[in-house]
């Protein structure tokens, strides 16, 4: 097992090298001129050249790349010119915010989507099936920023149920001490229920926005694979041998149907991290997504590279976990590997 994991990690190295190279090149072909931006509104060409030299942007590309890789090896992701902080510090302080929100949205989504998918598959062709399809499809058909704005308008502005969309926690509430960086967990750890309530109510609207968006892929795949599982030989055999329908659905069909669901989870997570970028912008969420967008718009290379690398590592780890989960859910894969 350990060797399998080791091999799997080794195979991710080419992808990581690709990511480092592509992200470096991409940020260098961006049309923005960082030097001109930071040389100030009245910069002369000479002043711009000075800033350029200061930032090391006058060197040839391979040299810049070599320096970048050396810095990376030392854990130095460079400085963000937009926030003025080291990128690594920015990322570590913001990553928990994004991770907490994305996981919250994903969990909300799973809790709703898997039962929906199962019901739709079991009652295939019924009104319930059609309603499920229509609902989840409607959810994914809305741009997330639009959903977010509408939720804010309805639940904050009109109904006044939700708190102001001002980030992770009430402006005047005390932030829980950092244990995991997840406010929901940290506040429970220290028993600060006021902070927990505040953090949860802040997370609800952005979480729901993300969940609405991700219902569809999960429910669809659950339904699709449940249908094939239900019509498969082994389910028919189980049914024929007189097992209760509940047992057939849960033990036989669902267990087999979960494989494509798990595969999709990795992609859904990746989609959610993308959607996060826009949701974070709408809800003033201090996560890495909004950070990367602002940096990209300001042609601030270092944060974009740092963000991409961090996401790549998360993605690789996530896929590793999914691969391992594969083996647990589908014995066929385990046996063959």
């Amino acid at each position: 097992m350990l060797k399998t994991i080791g091999d799997r990690i080794l195979t991710t190295i080419p992808a990581l090298i690709g990511v480092v190279l592509v992200s470096f090149l991409l940020t260098r072909v961006l049309p923005g001129d960082t030097a001109a931006y930071f040389a100030g509104p009245a910069a002369t060409p000479q002043a711009i050249a000075e800033v350029k030299a200061k930032l090391g942007l006058d060197k040839p590309l391979p040299e810049q790349f070599a320096k970048y890789v050396v810095d990376l090896a030392h854990g130095d992701l460079g400085q963000s010119l937009t926030t003025g902080q080291p990128v690594l510090a920015d990322l570590t302080s913001r990553l928990p915010a994004s991770a907490e929100l994305t996981l919250f949205g994903l969990i909300l989504s799973l809790v709703i989507a898997i039962p929906l998918g199962v019901v739709a598959a079991v009652r295939q062709g019924s009104a319930v099936d059609h309603i499920c399809r229509v609902v989840v499809t409607a959810g994914v058909s809305l741009p997330v920023f639009f959903t977010g704005l509408i939720l804010v308008y309805v639940f904050y502005f009109i109904l006044q149920w939700s708190p102001a969309p001002l980030g992770r926690i009430d402006v005047f509430a005390t932030t829980p001490p950092t244990v995991t960086g997840f406010y929901l967990i940290d506040s429970l750890v220290v028993g600060d229920y006021e902070a927990f309530r505040s953090a949860l109510s802040q997370m609800l609207l952005p979480g729901v926005t993300l969940a609405i968006f991700s219902l569809a892929p999960i429910a669809r795949i659950t339904r699709a694979s449940m249908i094939s599982a239900l019509s498969a030989e082994f389910t028919r055999t189980a049914k024929a041998s007189g097992l209760s329908p509940r047992r057939v659905i849960v033990t036989y069909a669902l267990r087999n149907a979960l494989l494509p669901v798990v595969t999709t989870l990795g992609m859904v997570f990746s989609f959610l991290l993308g959607a996060n970028v826009l949701v974070e912008k709408v809800f003033a969420w201090p996560g890495v997504g909004s950070y990367a967008v602002e940096a990209l718009i300001a042609s601030d290379f270092a944060p974009v590279q740092g963000f991409v690398l961090a996401m790549a590592i998360i993605y690789v780890v996530l896929n590793l976990l999914i691969d391992l989960a594969y083996g647990v859910i589908d014995p066929r894969v385990r046996m063959s590997s």
Binding site: L149, V152, Y153, F157, P165, K281, V282
Partner: peptide
Amino acid sequence: RVVPSAGNRRALLER
């Protein structure tokens, strides 16, 4: 506080 969405800034003020 930084609130990037203009709609949200207005809502915060009105509320």
